[in-house]
Amino acid sequence: MSFALTVKEEVISHTFDDNLGQAFLAGFIKYNGDFIWGSGTEKLKLTSISNKIARSIFGLCKKMFDGHIEISVSQTQTLKQNKTYQITLIGKISEFLRELNIWNENNTKIVEFKPLKQEKNKDELIKLKRAYMAGVFVSVGSVNSPETTNYHLELQFKDEESALYIIKLMNKYGFDFKILKRNDKLFICYIKKAIMVSDFLKFIDAYQAVMNFENERIMRDVSNNVNRVNNIDISNEKKTLSAGLKQIDQISKIQANLATKRLSEKAAYLCDLRIQNPNASYADLTELMNEFGYEITKSGVSNLFKIIEKLSLEFNN
């Protein structure tokens, strides 16, 4: 299984409440759905090469679509014999698409993301946008394996308007998406910096993928520098890196859920230090804390990380 498909299956495995589920489905259907009109009946075809994704999309549609749903499987005759799972919605499709704010009253696509209800709470609106972008990624996204040195994540669109809107939406959150026109048919939104790829995976709640991505990247960097470093204990270095990555993942969950304010000032500062110094030992962090006026021992640093870990567990899906 490719890394991109692994990411998509992790994203779709989350439990969505009704609002987040609608936002996710809007993002997925907008760029995956194929509207079919024939014999006086409206149909919407959705496809995926993943059984897990297909089953999850089927479950979301069953909750939100008031009509008939069919699911089928086709298989190519190539050596790989790939299967394609097809979900067909039959009934009042135009009405369903308008309910999801994918189509307007003239039955033309709405490019911008519009929550079903006017959400005034800024935190909740961010969550809806993250769910929407998760749906977009599962539909048209791709990301290179972290085992390669070519860091690359992209979203493919058939129209320039959609690509430009997604760039505008995501760059508001600190990303640096670029656009590329390919073969006069596709418009590619892409990022190449490793930190940007990692941050996007966090944005769509693919935390296990982030861990795998960062672990491969940092371990490779360590391996590339082994010959330049003398008298270094590689085993201890990797253990320190592994612990640092785990703590960065915990901190990312806390930050993504805007819960940093629940930590003490000292713990919040330790979070910043750990992100800036993923391979620092507890002794190094203790020294840095003391240098900046936070009196603490190595044991105190350990205790603060236990508090950080406990808080991050509240945001596990």
Rank of each mutant, 00 (worst) to 15 (best):
D199K: 15
V229N: 04
I232N: 02
K117Y: 00
A26S: 15
I232E: 02
E105W: 05
P278M: 10
C189Y: 03
L100N: 09
A283V: 14
L186T: 12
F200T: 07
L153M: 13
L288D: 00
L125T: 02
I188G: 02
K193P: 00
F175D: 10
T260Y: 10
A280K: 06
G141Q: 03
T78G: 15
D18R: 10
L46K: 01
Q276S: 13
A26F: 06
H68R: 15
L304Y: 12
L241G: 07
D249E: 06
N225K: 12
F213S: 01
I179S: 02
S302C: 00
I110C: 07
K45E: 15
E160Q: 08
V143N: 03
F113E: 02
K238C: 12
M196V: 05
N183Q: 13
T88G: 08
V140R: 11
T15K: 14
D272Q: 07
I275A: 08
D284R: 08
L263H: 04
K172P: 07
L311W: 04
I308D: 05
E105M: 11
A280F: 09
G141L: 05
Q247R: 13
P115C: 03
I307D: 05
I36Q: 11
I49S: 15
N257E: 07
D272Y: 07
M133C: 14
V301A: 07
R220C: 00
G91M: 08
I166D: 03
S50L: 10
L201M: 14
L313E: 15
T148K: 10
S74M: 12
E70V: 11
N101C: 11
A283I: 13
G293C: 04
K83F: 13
T15Y: 08
S13G: 12
L285G: 04
V7M: 05
A209P: 00
T260S: 12
Y190W: 06
L116P: 01
Y269E: 05
V226L: 12
T84K: 13
N279T: 15
E124Q: 14
T148R: 10
P278V: 14
K306Q: 14
M219L: 07
G244W: 09
K127N: 07
D233Y: 05
R220V: 00
F113N: 03
S281V: 09
K261A: 01
Y31E: 13
N19M: 14
N277A: 07
K238H: 13
N227V: 13
L263V: 05
G174Q: 10
G21P: 00
K192R: 10
V140L: 09
L97N: 08
E287P: 06
N101R: 15
P115M: 01
K306W: 01
T41I: 15
D159Q: 06
I166E: 04
R98Q: 15
E160N: 02
K178H: 10
I275T: 06
N101D: 06
Q247H: 02
E291T: 12
P146D: 09
A256G: 00
E105Y: 10
F213D: 01
T240S: 11
V138C: 14
K178W: 00
F137D: 01
I234V: 13
M196S: 15
I110S: 02
K238S: 09
I248Y: 01
K298L: 04
S223F: 06
D221L: 11
K298F: 00
G293V: 04
G135M: 07
N121S: 09
I307P: 00
K239Q: 09
D284T: 12
I204N: 05
K129W: 05
D18S: 11
K158R: 12
E124N: 11
A267W: 04
L186N: 09
